[in-house]
Computed example of a mutant assay.
Amino acid sequence: MRSLLILNGPNLNLLGTRQPDVYGHTTLADIQRLCREKAEAVGVGIAFEQHNSEGALIDAIHGAKGTHAGIILNAGAYTHTSIALMDALSSVELPAIELHLSNIHAREAFRHRSYIARVAVGVICGFGAAGYPLAIEAMLSHLDRDP
């Protein structure tokens, strides 16, 4: 069975209480449950992780090579600052989808730049927690495409 890594970055452990006007009241545990339900429905395995430190995210990306078919990454604020995450994604040569709960293009100007998008097969943003099951579907569609 194919497997996907769903990787969440800094401060996402605070979902449900952090800036509910921006991120809503859905918790990361709620999102994990949505992802597990979607994965079961479409017959794919998932690993679901969250790390606040950049190094731990990089280690998780490196660990995905040879284990997972693709990576869905909500890198949080590291999206806009981390060349190291971009390089890690490039290095493992796995398809990645950049994911955000909020529409980063409707927010502060500094959030409009993404280092992750440069190496991702696509970006999903602005759909809240519903973006996660969308990202699973999009990744499977990408993986099933003829080369």
Rank of each mutant, 00 (worst) to 15 (best):
M1T: 09
M1R: 04
R2E: 10
S3C: 07
S3W: 01
L4H: 00
L5G: 00
I6P: 01
I6C: 07
L7K: 01
L7G: 03
N8V: 06
G9F: 03
N11M: 08
L12E: 00
L14R: 03
L14H: 04
L15Q: 00
L15I: 05
G16Y: 02
G16F: 04
R18W: 13
R18C: 08
R18V: 11
Y23A: 09
H25D: 11
T26H: 01
T26V: 09
L28C: 04
L28Q: 03
L28H: 03
A29Y: 13
D30M: 08
D30H: 07
I31S: 03
I31W: 05
Q32R: 15
R33Y: 14
L34Y: 08
L34Q: 12
L34D: 09
L34N: 05
E37K: 11
E37M: 08
E37Q: 14
K38S: 13
A39F: 02
V44W: 08
F48Y: 15
Q50E: 15
Q50Y: 13
N52D: 15
S53A: 15
S53G: 15
E54M: 09
G55Y: 07
A56H: 15
L57V: 14
L57Q: 10
I58Y: 07
I58D: 03
D59Y: 14
D59M: 15
D59W: 13
A60N: 01
I61K: 02
A64Y: 11
A64F: 13
G66M: 05
G66R: 06
G66A: 06
T67C: 14
H68Y: 15
I72P: 00
I72F: 00
N74Q: 07
A75D: 06
A77K: 14
Y78L: 15
Y78P: 01
T79I: 11
T79K: 05
I83T: 14
I83C: 12
A84Y: 05
L85T: 11
L85G: 09
A88E: 12
A88L: 14
V92W: 02
L94H: 10
L94P: 04
A96N: 05
A96V: 13
E98C: 10
E98A: 10
L99K: 01
L99Y: 02
L99M: 05
L101V: 12
S102F: 07
S102R: 04
N103P: 05
H105P: 04
A106H: 13
A106K: 14
A109G: 02
A109N: 12
F110T: 05
F110G: 00
R111G: 07
R113V: 14
S114K: 09
S114A: 12
Y115H: 02
Y115L: 02
I116P: 01
A117S: 14
A117C: 09
A117Y: 06
A117L: 10
R118K: 13
R118P: 00
A120R: 03
A120C: 08
V121C: 09
F127A: 11
A129Y: 09
A129D: 09
G131M: 08
Y132N: 04
Y132W: 10
L134Y: 05
I136V: 12
E137D: 15
A138Y: 01
L140S: 00
S141W: 13
D144A: 11
D144H: 07
D146S: 08
